[in-house]
């Protein structure tokens, strides 16, 4: 639903070349300096989960949105919408973890706002953020820049965050030795850009909708076909176990600390090596390739060697029994 809403209403109302690229950040030039700006909202339930919390998620998610165009994230603003009666102690814990995450990512929170809504009109706390960064070199990294022949590299295992959140839900009593993969990726991105330079055509951190959503967004934005290999896509065994149990496809399960990179064929080896050297990229793998045929379509070579379409998901993927 969200994609149609964005497609029709907002793009018509606010139409401009920067927004039309539909990247996670807008890059504009102000007196010769190229500035990347992003905005995001965070509504996670539960607020605290293994590997992180809504505060850390908000900082890391914003840092990642900004740096995915090659920019260096510098400043953040944060807006809180608090539900009346939310314990101050909870807010304190969230703010503390935001402070730590900002320090770790090397960004400064320079402005903020707080509003309180009546009880029942919100869900404890919503956080909206804005991220600002500088795009130093002549980089042009956007979901519209994929070229046929490009190689697709994924920085690590998929589905860790989504399964961690589901494991905390009341009705789905299962425990998975898995944590949210929420992490700031700006350092990893610098290694990627240093290794690949102009060869890095597109980058995005797949979050809600999983890897499948990002692959489809790339294919549509660049009007190219994408072919991936099922047996190349890394999935943690316990996450795979949970997905089997709940009838979920890991391709559609949320991530919070992974990068999907499209690089020119010549730069692929260097970029892969650079990612694998980084602590957040140890399980990186080449998962597929950009092709000319079937523009806008993502297809996958199954373990059996047959091909199937990887579609954009409609609505949230629910656990199923049949």
């Amino acid at each position: 639903m969200m994609n149609d809403l964005i497609g029709k209403l907002f793009l018509w109302a606010f139409a401009n070349p920067v927004l039309d690229r539909q990247d996670d950040q807008g890059v504009v030039e102000i007196r010769g300096v190229r500035v990347a700006v992003s905005t995001d909202s965070f509504v996670v339930d539960p607020l605290f989960f293994p590997g992180g919390d809504i505060g850390e998620l908000a900082v890391n998610g914003t840092v990642n949105d900004v740096c995915m165009c090659g920019a260096t994230p510098l400043f953040l603003t944060t807006g809180f919408i608090l539900e009346e009666g939310m314990p101050l102690e909870t807010l304190k814990k969230i703010v503390e973890s935001m402070r730590a995450a900002a320090l770790k990512a090397g960004v400064t929170i320079i402005a903020g706002d707080t509003k309180v809504v009546n009880k029942g009109k919100g869900d404890k706390v919503f956080i909206n953020t804005t991220g600002i960064g500088i795009v130093e070199r002549g980089l042009s990294i956007s979901s519209g820049n994929l070229q046929p022949g490009d190689v697709l590299i994924l920085s690590g295992t998929i589905g860790d965050h989504g399964i961690t959140i589901l494991s905390q839900r009341e009705g789905l009593a299962f425990q998975a030795p898995v944590e949210s993969d929420t992490a700031p990726l700006n350092e990893l991105v610098r290694c990627i850009v240093d290794a690949g330079g102009e060869g890095v055509h597109a980058m995005r951190d797949p979050t809600r909708g999983g890897l499948a959503a990002t692959l489809n967004e790339f294919a549509v934005a660049s009007r190219v076909g994408i072919k991936v290999h099922e047996d190349r896509i890394p999935v943690d065994p316990a996450v795979a176990g949970a997905c089997e149990l709940l009838g979920l496809d890991p391709l559609y399960v949320a991530n919070e600390g992974k990068a999907l990179v499209a690089t020119d064929e010549s730069a692929a080896e260097n970029v892969l090596k650079a990612i694998k050297k980084h602590p957040l990229g140890r399980n990186a793998a080449i998962i597929g390739r950009v092709v000319r045929e079937d523009p806008g379509l993502v297809s996958m070579r199954t373990r059996l060697g047959t091909w199937r379409i990887v579609d954009m998901l409609v609505g949230e993927q629910l656990p199923r029994i049949c």
Binding site: Q175, V178, P237, A238, V239, A242
Partner: peptide
């Protein structure tokens, strides 16, 4: 146990 994930 399902490859590390546990349920009842």
């Amino acid at each position: 146990d399902y490859a590390g994930t546990i349920n009842t």
